[in-house]
Amino acid sequence: SIKDSVKLCNFNCSQSQGITVQAIDDSRVLLIALKIDAGSFQEFRCDKDLVLGLDLESLSKILKQGNNEEYLTLMAEDSPDNLMAVFEDKKKDRISEFSLKLMDIDSDVLTIDDMETDCTITLPAYEFAKIAKDMKTLSESLKIVVTKDSVKFNAEGQIGTGSVILKPHTDMDKPEESVKIELNSPVALTFGAKYLNDIVKATSLSSTVTIKLTDKSPALFEYKLPSGYLRYYLAPKFDD
């Protein structure tokens, strides 16, 4: 989900936190925070805190070697030069092993405090992905306007304009289809459509996305994982 935004990033491993990643995209507009709790894994053991510097394109090449139904074990020594990946198909007695070179990656780590938010919107992840993709064809900016009655996505481009308005509703049978708006104060923010399209690459990870917006502050887009999260912080655009 994030390899088109960042190429190199540090995977921090610890027994208490599981795996955490913080990375900033090359254009310095998007901050990515990933947390995969230890409970996400069938087995997780980390005797000593480790930082694994990975090239995501290379990692992706290794991960594609395995089939979906295979077991994957990732292993690193105490002061590792390599990350080992072992795929096992227990039915077929097939084992494949790969080793990926680790890298020393210099990256700034930023402190992310819990932010006060003007509004929180939860909507189906596929719905947000469609809006982000469709609106990008009209304009390189997307304005999100939230009131207590609706959230409006608005694009103004050279060929014309477009908007999608979603009103809050609760789907009893399929809660993940609901649209929820929690509002402290109305907000209107503009974001780069390119970055929103990078964010929606996480759509397959979660049925819903939660968007937290605050005036003149970065937006938070959160995809909840079964045990953890993938969060994107996107700086808004301002009128010059």
Partner: peptide, 14 residues
């Protein structure tokens, strides 16, 4: 015209 600030301007370095 719109300006796109860096995300780094919003968060403190650790």
């Amino acid at each position: 015209d719109e300006k796109q600030p860096s995300i780094k301007t919003f968060f403190m370095p650790e």
